[in-house]
Write a protein that binds this DNA or RNA. Structure first.
Lengths: 214, 214, 214, 214
DNA sequence: GACTAAACGAGACGGTACGTCGAGTCTTTGT
DNA sequence: ACAAAGACTCGACGTACCGTCTCGTTTAGTC
């Protein structure tokens, strides 16, 4: 998560290629965080990165491509998967991590952009699917351990678990619109735990959306 | 969709053009459905409504105000609250209704607009809060009946139930991006039922976000 | 051109017709004085006259007609023709009268409107021609007396005299743009007198513009 | 008409489009000639110049600024000052030149714009003052020669002479509205000559208005 | 260490849409 | 029945960005 990272932060006479690249992407995320996708102006991004507009257009086809790229850069960083010893603890930890990411300026910006009008961009949709596919995959060991410990019924689907966990948090963030805090995280964990124990998260169905799970 | 419409619609000094008014709002929703908020052009809306651009601007301050109004108009249509005799049936029914609404062209457009870049508009935020407040409120009898029947623990919070029910559905629609069908609805109902029975939906806290729960 | 015939203009003095008529014309002149023809707005005129825009449009075809009428109303006030006993005194007096009229708010407005973009209006051109034709005609006795007194050569053309007198004053007002005071008036009178005495103002040619003099 | 034109025209950071610049100004004058200032549309000017509207607005703040600039460009062309050997001939020549300029399409447009509603623009007023100041200044040698030849009284003011000469011509053009031909020019010359000989054009006063006479 | 080729700075340009203002016309309503 | 109120169409205004283009001017990689 190298946000304000590369020492080329300010309108400095940017030397050459890679520094510029990083500076522009950082500026893009920053702008995204401040005003969202709609308010993002290539000219402002360029200025913020200490670079000329045409230089940006030289590397990225258009505003969309720029945003996609900037998002992809910052999305790689994913939520670390915990191992507290109990599925309850693990779920709570995962929920908190997710909330923590979502309330960070960058996280907020990225997530908002992933949902906003940028949704219309096919690349964004793809990126989104990729991200969640990844998250689902990484949750598998957590669920597997819980099943092994006998905490969850055999056949519990990791994807369904992650979905159930993430859903209330995103719902709060994007739809109902209230504050996003640990209370929400814990509630999400409790709901997921109850559902998993009740055996309703065994759906092997395509939860991951358009991503084929085979 | 024209609930409280034609004669004395709103405290707006309309006077002359109720037809125009309706036509413009319909055109707005149509455009919203086709291209989303970002691609919505006042001129195109006007043209589609068979009206001149300035006429639109006479009544609505902004593109934003226009969208807000159009959305508000079509939001009135709410999900009917069922009474099947069991909370399981009621939840399934509510989930199906919500899915039905969200997959309808209008519903899809409205809900998408409510989340997209239009989120930045304070009025949209307000409208969103109002809508969900309404939904929460209308769910109260359903939960109350279930509690009375002994299906759910005393103290179960209707808001929490609705949130839990709506969350997976919206998550699918907005985040994970897969197809929205009855499978999703039933999964949501099952999760909610499990959580409610487990007594984790008794949070008296403001789950509905900024909405007053009185 | 029965434009400014105030009292018994129409067969039926319906409603508060005549008062409105006068109020609107007055408002028009006032607006003309404040911002010129270009800045004159029918709506503002109407508002100033305490009348609705459509009421104005009912009586006057368009902005042009309104201005023409308003001007005609105030043009009636013409320069009184003096009789001081000498042509020098008469000319000086006429010049001073003209200057006095032109520096008055109304006079300034009227004259400016007659010249400004309103020039493109044929009716304005006509009105202008009529006005000057009138002034020329009314100057005839003055010149005739001077000739009779032997002050001016026989054959001196009254039109030419008035033109010569008015020209430097209007030139100052409209073209060179300096202050308009008695100095200008006297200079105009002196020039005219010198020219008339030298016999160069005997041109019987069409000085009155597009008006055919035979 | 392109006196001090193409290469380093004005202290304007033009940079790229001198052709465009000239084309737009030419189009502006043409439009001015056809419909006057009031009817001048930026869009039409742009189209006529084969340029986009926004390009025009990039260089000129306003419709007003555009007109001012266009006028300034075409004003440089001034009336050549004659030297026929006699003041009578010189005056006649000057009057004819002025008439010639005023009846030319461009001259007519420029002069009309200088007087019309554009008068409200301060820059236009300035430009006007500058133009006439220039004309007055350039007339000085003509008068000086006439005085040297003994044709005119010592102390005759060149500004007053030019004013006296130009006044009847402009009066005809702008006020009385008749045809503008050599008859008018000759009449103006005769009047001016008579007045100058009579010694009434010795006013040392500021006849040129706000123009500094040094 | 000089030289060439790509990358960059600078900014004009055509375009699309915005939101505003005013002119005139047309329709509804009150009396 | 008619005139006041005001809604509507139309056309232009001046603004903000978008994405493209063409110029120099650097700067990096090669010889």
């Amino acid at each position: 998560m190298e946000l304000g990272s590369t020492p080329a932060d300010r309108p400095r006479p940017v030397g050459r290629g890679p520094k510029m690249h990083a500076a522009v992407l950082a500026a893009t995320v920053a702008e995204l965080a401040e005003g969202g996708y709609a308010a993002l102006t290539v000219e402002r991004v360029a200025q913020r990165a200490g670079v000329h507009k045409t230089t940006v257009y030289r590397r990225w086809k258009d505003r969309a491509a720029l945003v996609v790229d900037a998002l992809a850069e910052h999305i790689a960083t994913d939520i670390p998967m915990p191992d507290t010893g109990s599925i309850g603890g693990d779920l709570r930890e995962m929920a908190r991590s997710l909330v923590g990411w979502l309330v960070s300026p960058t996280g907020r910006a990225v997530e908002a952009a992933l949902i906003s009008d940028a949704v219309r961009l096919p690349e964004i949709a793809e990126a989104r699917a990729r991200i969640f596919g990844d998250r689902f995959r990484r949750a598998e060991p957590v669920v597997a351990r819980a099943v092994a410990r006998g905490e969850l019924p055999v056949g519990t689907d990791p994807s369904a678990v992650v979905s159930a966990l993430a859903a209330p948090i995103h719902f709060r963030l994007l739809v109902s619109g209230g504050p996003l805090d640990d209370t929400v995280a814990e509630q999400a964990a409790r709901i997921t735990l109850a559902a998993a124990r009740a055996g309703v998260l065994d759906t092997p169905a395509r939860v991951a959306g358009p991503v084929d799970k085979g």
